[in-house]
Each structure stands twice: as C-alpha cells, then as structure tokens.
Design a protein around this nucleic acid. Structure first.
Lengths: 325, 325
DNA sequence: GAATTCAATGTAAATGTTTTCATTATCAAC
DNA sequence: GTTGATAATGAAAACATTTACATTGAATTC
C-alpha cells in the first residue's frame, strides 16, 4: 500500500500539500492539485483511516447492540440506526446481546480504546442489568428501557396495552388472557390495570409469563394454549406481548379446533411482517422500530459531537386492526 | 484520556516497558509489572486501538453486507458471521445492500483505507452485479452466489428444488405452480427440469416471478393467488422460493376458501421461524444460515491472515416436513 | 525599486503505539 | 574480583496522518 509519502514524492510536493488536497482543497493551487491527484491515481492511494483518526481523534463509529434472536423487530431497528449513522458519516459496529452471557465491558473497552465513539443498546433487558462502573462516561443511548441514567428511546407500553384491552372490551370480550414473558412487567401491569379500569375480572389461570431463553417463544405459546385447553379455561381474548407469540397462539388455538377470532380473539405487539403474513392477520400494536433506531442514533451522534441532547424520546404506538381481533 | 506515556511516567518506567506489560508480560519483572498495573488502574488507561493497529497494521474488522430487508434469514447469517468473527477476535462492521442504490465502492474504500480487512457479501443478487475494478484485490467472500471470482458459500438450490418437486410428485401431486422472484433463475430452472424428470406438465399460467423491490413479497403472493383463482387454474401444489412467500400464498389460499394442504399443497424455502409459526406449518427446505455465515467468516479471516482457502463451500439442504404439503 | 501583503507551499511536531537494538543490572562460575 | 551469560529495561525509529508555524515567491502599493 502506498502512503501519503509516496504520493508526495511522485507529485514532487511535500506531504503537507498532499494532505491539504484531501482535507482543504481550496488552499492549494489548481495545477498542484492536478499533480497530486494524478500521482494518487497512479499509485492507487487511499488515505489511511487509522492514521487519520489517530491524529484527529475522531473515530466515526458507533456500536449497535441488539439481542441475538432473529427477530425482524431488531433487524428493523438496526437498519434505522445504520441508515442514520451513514447519513452522518458514521460506521456501525455490530454488537450482540445474549441474555445468559453478556458482558457490556467488552464494548465499553472498544470505546475506551477509541475503536468506537458510542453505544446504542437495545437488549430488551436493560432494566434487569446491573450498572457497570466502567461504563460511567461512555456515550450511550438505550432503546425501550433506561440504563444507568443514559438518554433513551421509549415506547409507552402501558398506554399501548391499555388501548388493546380497551379495544377488546369494546368488542365485547370479557374473559381475557395474557401471554408474555417474565421480563415484560410493564406490559403485564398495564394489562391488569386496564382490566380493572374496564371492570373486568383478572384470572390468574389465563396468564402465562414465560422465561424467554433462546428460541422458547414458540414453545411458550404452545404450552400456554395446551394448558388453557386442559383446564377448560378458554378466554374470549388473548393479549400477547409480541406478534410471534400471537402467531404461535393462533396456530395452536386453530389446531385445538377453536376459531380465531370468533371463539378467541388474539392480539400481538410489534407489527412485524409475521402479523400480516399469517391467517388470520394479527391485530397488533405498531412500534416504529426503524424510527426508534433512527432517533437513537441521532441522539448518540449528537452527544458524541458534544451537543446538548434530550433525556428521553417517547414514541407513540398505534393499533393496527386485522382479522385476529 | 491518559496514554501510555502517562502510565510510564506514573510507574517510573519507559513506555516500552508499559507496552510490554500488555503485549508480552513474561519478559517483565513481577515487581515492575505491579507498578505498571497500578499506575494504569489509577489513570484509567486503555491502550489506544487506533495507534495499536496503525503500528501493527492489522485491523481486526470485517464488513458484513446483507440486504436491508428485515428477513430472519439474514439476521441468522449475520449472527453466524459475528459469532465466528468474535471467536477470532474480529469486529464486524455492518454494511447494507439496497437493490436500487448500492455502491460497493463505499465498502471497498473502507478496506483500502485500512478501516477494515475484508468483506462478506450476502446480497442475494451478486450474480446481477457488475464487477468493480477497485474491488479487485479486496479480500472478499460471498454467500449464495459467486462474485468476481471470489470464494463463496453455496447452497445447492437445484438439488433442493428437485427434492421438493420429487416429494410432491411422490405424494401424488401433478399440477404444480411456482412462486418466486425474477432473480432466482436457478430455482426456477430446477423446478422446470424436475417437472420434466417426473413426467409432469409445466403450465406457464401457474408461474409467477415477481420483481422483488422492497416489501413487495407479501403482495406478490397475494397477486399470484388472485390470478390463479381468476383463471380457474388451481394447482395441486405450489413451490415457493421462500417461506415468506409460502406463508403469504397459504394465507390467500385459505382466504379464497381453499384448503391447505388438501386442495393445494404449499412448500417454502429457508426454514425460518415463520415456517413453524403459521398454520399449517410450512414444509420447506432448510438452509443452514448460521453455519453459512460462520463458514463465510472463517474463509474470509483465513484469507486475510494469509492462509490458503477453499474456492467454494457447498452446503447440503434438507427437507423439513410439516403440514402444508 | 523597496516595502507590504497574501497566496502557496514546506518543515516539523504531534497523535499513541510496537519493536528493534542497545544498554544496564543481576547473578553464577571461576 | 573478574568474566560471561542472561534477564530486564530504555531509547528511538516506525506506522500514516494533520496542522501550527515558518518560509518562499509573486503581486501590489507607494
């Protein structure tokens, strides 16, 4: 690989001039510029990123940490992050979160060692995650939940679930079940509180909060429906905390000879492709994943570049009505 | 940020010694090491990644380019890439591919400027992608299709589709339709060739090859089924080139009052979560996405580190039988 | 024609490391 | 107490840049 030195020699100028041609072209004479350009072309020169950033001490890379489950949800978010980062000239380094084997210090180290400037974290479990002292001064923005007092992107789960229950109640459904995961407390609380609000009875037998390890999502839905059938406790509606869960529930309900939505209405959460793809289409809560990623990246980059930024950005959800409820 | 210099001063040793403590600890005396460690601790020192790689001229970053559609397929692949890269101490930079707005030169530049060492490319469209002269000497491994003579990871589409048709024929299905995209020529050819092999008739009316721009996947399935119904040309089986297409087809078939698989059998491709999630579960071809990513990363990193590597790695597919066929 | 100004370019320091080579300290053997 | 060998450390070059400061040269003004 040829360096700036080689180009300088070839073009018969100093290295400073070559550097200027790339960083501040207007200060160098047209003719000299020409010489430099053709020398660079001839030698196939590209400025060395490492040396540049070492000198300028601005890296231009952010880390995006998402769970390592293959969910379209996170893929969309990553895309939002990436698109925006790109528009600001930043690169995105992939990080991944694994519930039973995650050490954020690995990523913090990348920041401290100047391999990257900041972190967008969307684990879905920040809340259950101990603060890490090394991460104290690392520019970080989280999605969905707060972490260590950093700015975060928030979706009003409480409001969303409330709207869903309201919709179901409005449609005349009384006995409602809940299918979610242990970590989604806010949504569960919202469910219970909404039931109360609409004068509906809460039945513990119709609730399942799974463990969420690995690919248990599908099994969780299956077990849930099986236990309902076994107990002869069939709700008139099931509120699920994700579209994947809802799809699973629908599948098993149909298999058990029940009709969705006639016998049992089912609602999801996320509005990912699956919600549209299955039959019946899933009535669900839309989360603007891509925009969330977008905003997270925007906050982070602004912070990195020293601007004052918001502490919290709240996104509105809306209900998408399809056939399942 | 404190540098190696600061630590050296604090510990009263030379910078060389500090460096050695981190890179080659056994050559420095225990007591000195102690001094250095506590100085580093006190100053919160982390070696500067940029300076390190500048000096060692080994970067330790690869770029993973995947399409920007939110498909679990690619998410799995990225995970495979990332997991393996991590195990070799490499970071993964996200790149994304957009059919009508993709310029690989952006990524090539990152390599040339030493921001990264190589590229794993999984666009699904390499074949239709013009060679780029700048990319000539860039370490690159592609997935699914060859590109510019680089090593690639291959799945035998021909064989896979053949197996699917064989299975359907074996089940007594005669009139078969095909739903895929224009770019998937190999699978289409395989379909036609397999029909011939089993003495079945090819009916142009039962074929759709969509354009595949953006999120058209779902619509494509809908239009396909609608046109079949309109023409009163209902096949006994439909071979789809992805699970998403299959799910869409199933949904619209059911909506049209047809029974899957009784009236129409439907098969997918990929074996992503959706295949398990919908009802009826989709009979499909399993592609080992994660392993493919894994192998791609392995090849690339070996190439980067100067080892001799394979030109082509072929993965075996297998049929996963569920309810839809 | 000398003085002044300004545009264009060059020199050299600085960024934070690793590593080669040279030097010094330590210790055993005679 | 020398000598020699070896272990531990230091000095400085090298990696590829950017940039503050200095220098040059030409044009402008008087």
């Amino acid at each position: 690989m040829s360096s700036i030195k080689d180009v300088a020699r070839e073009a018969q100028v100093s290295i400073a001039t070559v550097s200027r041609v790339y960083n501040n072209p207007k200060v160098v004479r047209g003719k000299t510029k020409e010489r430099v350009y053709s020398a660079a072309e001839k030698l196939g020169y590209t400025p060395n990123f490492l040396a540049q950033t070492l000198r300028k001490s601005i890296v231009g890379t952010i880390i995006a940490i998402v769970p390592d489950v293959s969910n379209a949800f996170f893929m969309d978010m990553v895309r939002g992050i990436q698109d925006y980062a790109e528009s600001r000239g930043y690169n995105v380094l992939m990080g991944h979160f694994n519930l039973n084997n995650f050490d954020i210090r690995k990523y913090v180290k990348l920041i401290k060692s100047k391999a990257a400037d900041g972190i967008v974290m969307a684990t879905g479990h920040n809340r259950h995650f101990k603060p890490v002292k090394e991460a104290r001064n690392v520019p970080m923005v989280t999605i969905e939940e707060e972490f260590m007092g950093n700015p975060y992107i928030y979706v009003d789960n409480f409001e969303a679930i409330k709207k869903i229950v309201e919709y179901l109640a409005f449609k005349g459904r009384k006995k409602m079940g809940f299918l979610g995961f242990k970590t989604e407390e806010e949504r569960f609380e919202a469910f219970k509180s909404a039931l109360k609000m609409y004068g509906l009875e809460y039945d513990k037998n119709m609730v399942k909060k799974g463990e969420e390890v690995g690919k248990a999502v599908y099994n969780s839905a299956m077990e849930y429906v099986e236990s309902l059938v076994e107990k002869h406790k069939i709700p008139e509606a099931i509120v699920c905390t994700s579209d994947v869960l809802a799809a699973g529930a629908i599948k098993w309900l149909i298999k058990s000879g029940l009709n969705v939505p006639k016998d049992v209405a089912v609602t999801g959460f996320d509005n990912i492709e699956v919600a549209e793809l299955v039959y019946p289409g899933i009535t669900t809560v839309e989360q603007p994943h891509e925009s969330m990623g977008h905003e997270a990246a925007r906050l982070l980059i602004n912070k990195i570049e020293g601007h004052e930024i918001a502490k919290k950005i709240v996104f509105q959800t809306r209900i998408i009505i399809r056939e399942s409820a």
